[in-house]
Amino acid sequence: MPKIRAEKKSRVHGQIQQGIHFKKEFGQHILKNPLVIQGIVDKAAIRPTDTVLEIGPGTGNMTMKMVDKCKKIVACEVDVRMVAELQKRIQGTPAASKVQFIVGDVLKTDLPFFDICVANMPYQISSPFVFKLLLHRPFFRCAVLMFQREFAQRLVAKPGDKLYCRLSVNTQLLATVDHLMKVGKNNFKPPPQVESSVVRIEPKVPPPPINFQEWDGLVRVVFVRKNKTLSAGFRSSAVMDMLEKNYKVHCSVNSIPVPPDMDVKEKVLEILTESGYAEKRARTLDVDDFLAILNAFNSAGFHFC
């Protein structure tokens, strides 16, 4: 009787599979379909000389498919129980010498050198991890990552698409992103509440020679109201105050006198009009458009960070 009560208590917080209690707070959904796992590994095109970074290896289903194809796997796992499970799985096999573990939160961990990243991502860290990955140096060759379906669709969305957003623009500035496959929820144990997709991310080398923080500041401003014209979006007092403050800092640093009668609102609308973007809407603009807008503002001494 005590054993039955203990098992029921565990099931309140997660699923029990082969003695493992999956924790929802870690977003643990183990990919169990070997055909899907093989498809992801094949899409990664791993070379014998590659170091593979695997995020969230769980019980090692994907790890075991990759280990014979590469030089080394660096497995980053936050759950020490999963680390122990995978260590038991590879103990006494040739894989044991090829798998290195990093135990901890990947968002708080300095990533090592790697050629390829492969991951069944915990969905709650998708966005911050993508940008941690894209800002990582030295450059890696590609990443093949599993995400919640809608998040993946946002990554690949094009101007005019319903899901086109700040995430789409920022990612596509730094990388080429392709949708590879859809993965149904029943391919996982326990099944998540949403459908999933696998994408391939390939960094642009070299990256555009811009300050990414400033770029993101511009994109953040225009996507607050992505369906309104840029001239309407820039009229908010918060945006005007930020641009005026940054302009005065720019002038001070560069010993440029600020005209006493300068009207910031008028100047901003003038920049948008002369660059041809005053009546454009954020949802229709691509990366090149945003680069042109940022250049127009910077040339006039206005900055977004």
Rank of each mutant, 00 (worst) to 15 (best):
S168Y: 07
S237C: 12
K108M: 15
V78N: 08
Q28Y: 01
V221E: 05
P208R: 15
S275P: 07
V287A: 03
S168D: 10
E244C: 12
N298Q: 06
P203E: 08
T59S: 08
G276V: 10
T284E: 14
S126K: 05
Y123F: 15
P57C: 13
V36E: 11
F302P: 05
L133I: 13
K43L: 13
L133Y: 03
I16M: 11
F139K: 06
K24H: 10
N120G: 05
N295C: 05
I46M: 10
V144I: 14
H179I: 11
L35G: 08
A143N: 00
K162V: 12
L218H: 11
Q38N: 13
I73K: 00
K185N: 09
C142N: 09
F147C: 02
V169N: 02
Y247P: 06
L134W: 04
V41S: 02
L285T: 06
P122N: 03
Q213T: 14
E25P: 05
I16E: 10
M240K: 15
N254D: 02
S237T: 14
P208C: 05
F139W: 11
D289T: 11
P57M: 03
R283T: 03
M66D: 02
I90L: 15
R89L: 09
Q15L: 10
D261W: 10
F26S: 00
L167F: 14
M1G: 10
Y123P: 02
M1W: 13
A278M: 12
R5T: 12
N170Y: 13
H303A: 01
V67S: 03
C251W: 06
H13M: 08
A75L: 06
N246A: 14
P208V: 14
R235K: 15
K98Y: 03
A282I: 04
I20S: 04
T229M: 07
R89C: 08
V205F: 09
G56A: 03
L53Y: 01
V99L: 01
P209S: 14
L53D: 00
P203W: 13
N254P: 02
Q124E: 14
V268N: 00
H29M: 07
Q38W: 06
P34F: 05
A152F: 11
G39Q: 06
